[in-house]
């Protein structure tokens, strides 16, 4: 499934939920289900500190594809983190660098990606792309 297809899939899942409470309910569920973060990676080096909430992000490369592992202390943030990982996991660096991530807006969560929310999400996406760029440079050698 391409990034675009994955994004479309998420938009469809959310479009079935008309009420904001149902959408946030789903986000909370997604956040609660994101449990695979390995404690050894919960270091200050992997910490993205927002004013409001914290995000931990770890990335690795295997066979030219990038994988992410992330966590947050706020569940709604964690739910959005889970969606971002679902879209960007197992992609090539170029795919990650060019991913539109328009689904966040399409499912009505754009406000959470505003820098003023300072929940760590904007910095997290930037960091994901930085990892992609770093691995791209490394793989090109």
């Amino acid at each position: 499934m391409t990034i675009e297809e994955r994004e479309k899939e998420i938009v469809e899942e959310f479009s079935m939920l008309s009420d904001w409470m149902d959408r946030y309910s789903l986000l909370i569920e997604l956040g609660n289900d994101l449990t695979d973060f390995e404690e050894e990676h919960r270091s200050n080096q992997n910490l993205i500190e927002g004013c409001q909430s914290k995000v931990w992000l770890y990335a690795w490369e295997k066979d030219g594809l990038i994988y992410f592992m992330a966590d947050s202390d706020a569940i709604i943030v964690k739910g959005i983190v889970a969606l971002l990982i679902r879209v960007l996991n197992g992609r090539t660096p170029d795919e990650i660098l060019e991913a539109p991530l328009a689904f966040v807006d399409a499912i009505g969560l754009k406000e959470h990606l505003s820098p003023t929310r300072s929940n760590g999400l904007v910095a997290m996406i930037k960091q994901m792309r930085m990892y992609a760029l770093a691995y791209k440079t490394k793989l090109a050698r």
Partner: peptide
């Protein structure tokens, strides 16, 4: 058991 950010976000809604 609920993070202040989550609480504030949902109250804002």
């Amino acid at each position: 058991g609920i993070h202040p950010f989550d609480t504030g976000t949902l109250l804002d809604k």
